[in-house]
Structure formats: structure tokens, C-alpha cells
């Protein structure tokens, strides 16, 4: 059972990749489906990290919401950092803070760390187990809990449902 779900997700990813690259020509689609099927059956065992993705409807809905939350944060913080850059005094307050995550699965942690890095103003420098060390361009908090609340919580509550 634990090989079936990674296989299905791998198949969907490969097939979607083909659709975006080659378009939807009917004869080619059959070849693409066959090739994706062979690859996903062969490599399902090695893609076990994908097994932590949950596929029930709530998780899928949260994945969609997560995408839009990420876009909103991306735009918001890009404008924030751009404003700091253009200001003559360069009002930055940088440093490295430690935060804690509640996520358990490796894939969930990787995606959380990468989301934090992609958002301007914060950058994951090191991960040690459940702790992340994050370079933050404008530190507003004092201790680990309030830093976690400010950086991690807004993404974590969605990833928690998607990955557990």
C-alpha cells in the first residue's frame, strides 16, 4: 500500500509535466501515459517521501488555499522589502532567529523551509530537526515562540493538513 500512493502522485506529476511541455495531442498522450506509468511503477519505491502527502478533499482544498496564501505573502513581503531598499536610511534590522515547527514529515518540512526562503525578508539558513535558523531582515520579536508565530505559523497551519 505504501508504494501505491507515491506511484499515483508521481504519475500525475509526470503526466502534467508532459501536458505542459508537449500539449494535448491524442496519439502522443497515449505514449505519454504509458511512459509515465512505467516510470512511476519503477520509481514508486524510491519516491516514498511523497507518501506523506494526504489526498483527501480537505487536504487538496488546503493545498489550493496554501498556494494563494503564499502568493499573497510573496507580493506583500516583496513590496515591504522593496520599500526598505528604496528608503534612504535603509531601515533594516537583520539577524538570525530560531523557530520551531510542528510538522513531522520530511517533505512537509522541506516545503515549509523553501516557502520561508522564497518569501522575501526571511531565509532559512540551517535546519536541525524541528528547529529552523532563519535570517530575518527585520527582527520584530524577542523569543522563539513569537518568532515562530510571525514567520512559520501562517504557512504551517495549511501544510499541517496537507502533510501531517
Amino acid at each position: 500500500m505504501h508504494k501505491v500512493k507515491p506511484g499515483i502522485i508521481l504519475f500525475v506529476i509526470l503526466f502534467g509535466l508532459w501536458l505542459l511541455l508537449a500539449g494535448a495531442d491524442r496519439d502522443e498522450l497515449i505514449v505519454a501515459a504509458a511512459a509515465s506509468l512505467v516510470i512511476s511503477v519503477l520509481f514508486a519505491g524510491r519516491a516514498s517521501a511523497l507518501g506523506s502527502v494526504r489526498l483527501h478533499p480537505k487536504a487538496i482544498a488546503y493545498a489550493v488555499i496554501f498556494f494563494f496564501v503564499f502568493l499573497k505573502e510573496l507580493v506583500h513581503s516583496t513590496i515591504d522589502v522593496a520599500g526598505r531598499l528604496l528608503s534612504p536610511r535603509l531601515p533594516i534590522n537583520p539577524g538570525i532567529v530560531k523557530v520551531r515547527t510542528r510538522l513531522k514529515s520530511p517533505l512537509g518540512r522541506i516545503i515549509l523551509a523553501n516557502t520561508i526562503t522564497l518569501t522575501p525578508g526571511t531565509m532559512t539558513i540551517e535546519t536541525k530537526g524541528e528547529y529552523y535558523y532563519i535570517h530575518w531582515i527585520d527582527i520584530r520579536t524577542e523569543d522563539i515562540d513569537s518568532s515562530t508565530e510571525a514567520i512559520v505559523a501562517k504557512f504551517e497551519k495549511y501544510l499541517e493538513v496537507i502533510f501531517g
Binding site: P94, I96, V97, A113, N114, L118, T124, I125, E126, Y133
Partner: peptide, 30 residues
């Protein structure tokens, strides 16, 4: 997918190489 991984790797390498943070920095928990 690739952008955060490369910037994380560069920053981590810089920190492990002992490059100091700027004087303006508030703190360095790592």
C-alpha cells in the same frame, strides 16, 4: 522549486565559512 534550494545552500555555506553578520544585526541564534 530550485531558487530557494540554491539560496539556502549559499547562505548556509557562508555561515559555515564563518562570514560575520553586519554590525547592525540584532542577534545570531545559530
Amino acid at each position: 522549486i530550485t531558487n530557494p534550494i540554491s539560496s539556502h545552500a549559499l547562505a548556509r555555506a557562508a555561515h559555515h565559512a564563518g562570514i560575520k553578520l553586519t554590525e547592525k544585526s540584532v542577534r545570531d541564534n545559530l
